[in-house]
Design a binder for these strands. Sequence first.
RNA 1: GGUCCGGUAGCUCAACUGGAUAGAGCAUCAGCCUUCUAAGCUGACGGUUCGGGGUUCGAGUCCCUGCCGGAUCACCA
Length: 602
Amino acid sequence: MQPQQSFMNLDLQLRSSIRSAVSALFQVQYDQLQLQPTNAEFEGSHTLVCFPITKISKKSPEQTATAIGEYLVAHSGIVSRFNVVKGFLNLVIADKVWAEVFQSIYADKNFGALPSNGRELMVEYSSPNTNKPLHLGHLRNNFLGYSVAEIYAALGYTVHKVQIINDRGIHICKSMAAWQLFGNNETPASNGLKGDKLVGKYYVEFDKNYKAQIKDLVGKGMSEGEAEKQAPIMKMAVDMLQKWEAKDEATLQLWKTMNGWVYEGFNETYKRMGVDFEKLYYESNTYLLGKEEVLRGLEQGVFFKKEDGSVWVDLTSDGLDQKVLLRADGTSVYMTQDIGTAILRFRDFPKIEGQVYTVGNEQEYHFKVLFLILKKLGYSWAEKCYHLSYGMVDLPTGKMKSREGTVVDADDLMQEMADEAEKQTRELGKIEEATDAQIKELSEIIGLGALKFFLLKVDPKKRMMFDPNESIQLQGHTGPFIQYTHARIRAIIRKAEIMGVQPSEKELTQIAVLEAAEREVIFMVNNYINKLNEAARDYSPAVVANFAFDLAKGYNHFYQTIPIFNEDDQIKLKFRIAFSQVVADVLKKSMKLLGIAVPEKM
RNA sequence: GGUCCGGUAGCUCAACUGGAUAGAGCAUCAGCCUUCUAAGCUGACGGUUCGGGGUUCGAGUCCCUGCCGGAUCACCA
């Protein structure tokens, strides 16, 4: 059931009218109505597909459609005209009905934000390793996860945003080893480098030396496989990992220090990205719980032990394979940690009905297995867990490879976008009285808006192409296009305020005739909640992004055709001010769900 | 090899989950600033929806089959 909405629900009314028509005409109860937007080439806004109804009506599609159309015009009170093309019944909603629809939206101060539905959800996103800085792939991840969380929140859910930080393991030990060898006690404070960048630098340094050592050993006649194990720097990293697990004080100290640098760097990046988290989980805190759970599962016979002492789960009956959960030496693997993390989260937030994991599609198998294991352990919520799987971000030059140095750094990219926005803002020179600081602030909004929109407009599950030249575009199907539309409307509102034009709710319904462009836009705005539901159902911010773009486009069409302030008719003038106001609000709200701000001027 | 995902205009993406003559943006070309912000608007050009079968009133969408690209099938995370 749809929650009660304070604005007039045209769709529901129309559906109910059509059902009445069908039952009156054909004496049959029919609920599977296929209602869709009317194609632009025909008159009308809503189209009823009548082919399926012919089975009931025992008439041709045209006759069926015509009969329903005539009935609706005579009895519904909302349909003023209709036309029939083949089996399609195109309905024209009366302008006074549109005016009422609009008025109810205008009057609803909370339009687009549903009241709490009492349900809780957790959304995990970001979840980086602590050995290198965030990159373009993380940007897609963060923007996606953040946006999905916001969309659910708008629909009345209480949403908890979290992440799991992979703070332990061989990767961070590699950076630690390299830093000890070559760091000369360098710190972010001593050299001014961002903490995550500094640690990342030593991760690269490790790899460089590691490769050189392997090459050297192979040159001395060692096999490649053996050399990978025997390289001194790798032995050092492995040794550190073991010391870490044994809680060696000096190792822990170094680990804490270097992770601390990384977190400082990450926080700066998150701040600029505009994302936030209610609670952070650290693998170093959850992997032990995972281990306990696995041992419990072992006792219960859910898992089994092999001769060497390693613990496994058998998923062959689910069409999957066997999977290791604890190594022979008792140490945990990635899966073990994720089991612990999931359980811990449900203990921390007992009211959540499920979790959304925003993680790349290369881990689809992992999550399939994870959810199955949790189910086997007896956690019923496992079925409500969802892997929000998204495709890789490709560069025109191909795949991003951190080892080949082809990654696009998140900080650099955000800076480039802001710089480009600033350049174009200054070239256009529209904001005459702006200070330098204001221009910087605006450029940040525009640059980040462009970047976020670019990454969010594509269906998450699809792999996407990131062309720097295209992403930096501020025209066309972009965030700034929508921001610009908003800014233009705000200029109109400011002017109306100066002129003292105050739309009143009562007058809004007095408008007799609407322009086509106005009808179209009201139709779109009226569809906003439907779009949010669709976006939530599909975990796809792209739905919201494309909605906002279409709405902006629709409004721009109106803007171009109708000079608002040339209007003598006060009712029309006021209606158009209110109408513009509503569009600006909905643009702002929908962009906010994408994490994108909209400026007052640009 | 098994499993999963994808293939739509020159390029980047849509298509309300089976509906009408498949739509936008970019690029190219032609128009629109003495009027609310031209980061805008209007038009033109652009398609065998990877190929081949099938299902039905109707298929980009569902089924089968082949081709191409990607991911995954680790005691890595």
